[in-house]
């Protein structure tokens, strides 16, 4: 019933951000991640944004060159709401980075994490109001961080 991981991946399948809300051994995490990503990459645009994999429900959406992938556990999560959440996350990143692209996330990895931390915690959505989400990081920027 909660979000287990959030991945941002480019279309070559390279991870650009990975946030897990459960602990994995490093090798297991790498194996899981690469399989999830491989499945996303092989699905076509006309297929739906959900699939089931190793007990997770994967909800993903592609924006230009970036895939946003969310792994959810349990059977009572609203897939459409998760999809809407991904969109909200992308819009928030867009507002901060002005049309977010792969390089923005890669070269500002910690900032992307700061933003995600304001939106998801312990696998639950905290905040979707973009102004509220961005307030802490904008303050940090102002302070010359």
């Amino acid at each position: 019933m909660t979000i287990r991981f959030v991945l941002m991946v480019n279309k070559q399948g390279q991870t650009r951000l990975a946030q897990y809300y459960e602990t994995h051994k490093m090798d297991e995490r790498c194996a899981l991640e690469s399989e999830v990503i491989r499945k996303c990459l092989t699905r076509t645009d006309t297929q739906c944004s959900f699939y089931e994999f190793r007990g997770y429900k994967i909800v993903y959406r592609r924006y230009a060159s970036l895939f946003f992938i969310v792994g959810v556990e349990g059977d009572d999560e609203n897939e459409l709401a998760i999809l809407e959440f991904i969109h909200s996350l992308v819009e928030t990143l867009d507002r901060y980075f002005e049309n977010v692209c792969e390089l923005d996330i890669m070269f500002n990895l910690e900032k992307a994490h700061f933003i995600l931390d304001e939106m998801v915690m312990n696998g639950c959505i905290i905040e979707t109001n973009k102004t509220n989400v961005l307030a802490p990081i904008q303050l940090l920027d102002k302070a010359g961080g």
């Binding site: 946030q19 602990t23 051994k25 490093m26 910690e110 994490h113 700061f114 931390d117 940090l140 302070a143 961080g145």
Partner: peptide
Amino acid sequence: KFLEKRIGYLGLMILLDE
């Protein structure tokens, strides 16, 4: 320093293993 604290917490949450 807040920025250092911020990075420190982020590191703690991500690097922590079992």
